[in-house]
Design a protein around this nucleic acid. Structure first.
Lengths: 96, 96
DNA sequence: TCGATAATTAGACGGTCGGCTAAATATCCG
DNA sequence: CGGATATTTAGCCGACCGTCTAATTATCGA
């Protein structure tokens, strides 16, 4: 659980997750969205994978990353549980 | 928003929030639950306050901390929004 | 097999973070 | 006011984190 929060604490990694929300993407394609070297991005990917927030799939030379939505749902559920706060009446948070 | 995630990335601060889930508590009483010096704890409190995750109230010499549940709800709501994932059908994820 | 491309691993460097002690501030009570 | 208690601020230090370049691994196509 700690690894998850650590993973989420970096803006770059959160943006990666955000991009993956639109569908899976290769490491290079993903890295193209940032002003950071590919090795640095690769490190971020490793952190996300270690936290089990993303899954990987190799297709030829490329490696495709995708959101692990199951874990993401668990994360949010755990946050409520952790703080012992009553969740909002309907839906996890569509309405602002 | 970044400050919130940074604040949540530390286990000590998360446990503080967890304790506050049971109700407000003074700084000293809160610090008593940890093996960390009071100044260090005070720093953690400041981080949580800066992220707007807690509120403070002075009563005599003591300062009472309490969860800012409104912001916590917003945080979780934003997580869903950020990642563009469908929330669980009923409730924000209260039931495991 | 050889060369090109995609991605990761290795190692180094600067900045941030969490911890401490000592000192300062705020409040209460006699 | 003066002393005691509660909390925060100031300043320092070691460890961890994010970044980079250079080198390594894996795969494809000719």
């Amino acid at each position: 659980m700690n690894e998850v929060f650590k993973a989420l604490s970096d803006p770059t990694r959160r943006k990666v997750l955000q991009l993956l929300g639109r569908g899976e993407m290769s490491a290079g394609e993903l890295a193209g969205h940032f002003d950071v070297s590919k090795p640095s991005m690769s490190h971020h990917f490793a952190v996300l994978k270690d936290a089990d927030l993303v899954t990987t799939r190799r297709e030829g030379q490329q490696i495709y990353y995708a959101l692990n939505t199951t874990v993401l749902q668990d994360v949010v559920a755990r946050i409520w549980d952790l703080f012992g706060v009553e969740p909002k009446p309907s839906g996890g948070g569509g309405e602002p």
